[in-house]
């Protein structure tokens, strides 16, 4: 793709939909201000020296060391600023993130995530609120039992809901995610919720967060609509395919005779190109299917790059409906 063809570029921190993320963002931003000031200060002195003390201009170099009080001031300032960043920002922010689990009276919603090469298994307790025991001996992807639940023998497991790569969550309610892995170390990362935690086999590690009230995946999608140019016939479709991958049309894309080429909610692809070109459509509007993505940030094997999941944020009432529907479906395995 050409350098200038970037649609909807992003330059800095991505949007944040968690209630705690602003503190992380604030720390990152202040650190960069500090770094920039230091760098520009150094750079100004450095550049001045390079120009002023070049060989021809300065006939003799200074033997005696200069008394540089300024350097002591700079070094002291660096120490003070680092102490402030550490003590006033970094440690409290982390303590809040790590040491304050949601209290039972806040009605937290707990969900388990079991990572495996190369998928995220999402384990919900079902209506009884109890998680079934996961038995490694019963694990079988082939039999659609990736977690090793004993649906018949374990009463807690009967109503458990198991999802694959799609994690539905209610907004505005504290969420506890307990993380583990079946095979290698993965890392559960949701940049747009400012959450990251390695998943380590043999360990169960919790993270918790709350998604801002009033938001939802549908609302976020509306903010991420982009226009993608349809390439001329015979031109390289690379950019078009790239910008449409995992995106959906935000409206029906119709030809001149009114036939729908790409339906609303469908992913445009190279197959649609010919029809789009024939219809003389110059550009189409798309948006991410699921805008909030789960990344695996730890190298986990051959198709690490494909280990992507989604967090689907729902208003609480919508979530309850969805949850009840899933529970009614029994042990149905939710495919992406």
């Amino acid at each position: 793709m050409s350098l200038l063809a970037q649609t909807q570029p992003m330059y800095w921190l991505p949007p944040d939909y968690s209630t705690h993320g602003w503190q992380i963002d604030q720390l990152i931003n202040w650190m960069h201000v500090f770094m920039a000031v230091l760098f520009v200060g150094w750079g100004a002195f450095f550049t001045q020296c390079l120009v002023k003390y070049r060989y021809r201009r300065n006939p003799t170099a200074l033997y005696e060391p200069i008394k540089a009080k300024a350097s002591k001031v700079v070094e002291a300032a660096v120490v003070v600023i680092e102490v402030v960043l550490l003590v006033a920002f970094a440690i409290p922010v982390l303590a809040e993130y790590k040491n304050d689990p949601p209290k039972p009276e806040d009605n937290p919603f707990e969900v388990h995530v079991v990572a495996q090469q190369f998928a995220w298994n999402i384990h919900y307790p079902g209506p009884d609120g109890k998680f079934g025991k996961r038995n490694p001996k019963l694990v079988s992807d082939a039999n659609s039992n990736p977690l090793g639940l004993d649906r018949d023998g374990d009463p807690d497991a009967k109503d458990d809901i198991v999802g694959n790569n799609e994690m539905h969550l209610p907004v505005g309610r504290p969420i506890i995610v307990k993380l583990t892995s079946k095979d290698v170390i993965h890392s559960f990362s949701v940049p747009m919720l400012r959450v990251k935690q390695d998943t380590v086999p043999g360990m169960e590690i919790p993270v918790w967060f709350t998604v801002k009230e009033g938001t939802s995946s549908d609302a976020i999608r509306e903010t991420m609509i982009r226009t993608v140019a349809v390439p001329a016939a015979g031109a390289n479709p690379r950019d078009f395919v790239l910008w449409c991958t995992n995106n959906i049309a935000v409206e029906d894309i119709k030809g001149s005779d009114g036939t729908v080429i790409v339906g609303k909610g469908r992913e445009p692809s190279a197959e649609h190109l010919e029809a789009l070109q024939k219809a003389g459509i110059g550009e189409i509007r798309v948006a991410p299917r699921h805008p909030v993505e789960i990344h695996c940030t730890q190298l986990c094997g051959i198709t690490h790059y494909k280990m992507r999941g989604f967090v689907i944020l729902m208003p609480p009432d919508e979530f309850e409906t969805w949850y009840a529907e899933q529970a009614a479906g029994g042990d149905e395995f939710i495919e992406e």
């Binding site: 991505p14 747009m192 991958t245 993505e293 190298l299």
Partner: peptide
């Protein structure tokens, strides 16, 4: 800073990756 993770064979499957692909080409 946008949040794209390392060690990816391609980052263009990810929304954040698509939005920063121009830098990758650069």
């Amino acid at each position: 800073i946008v949040g794209v993770q390392r060690r990816l064979w391609t980052q263009t499957d990810y929304q954040l990756g698509q939005m920063t692909q121009y830098w990758v080409v650069f």
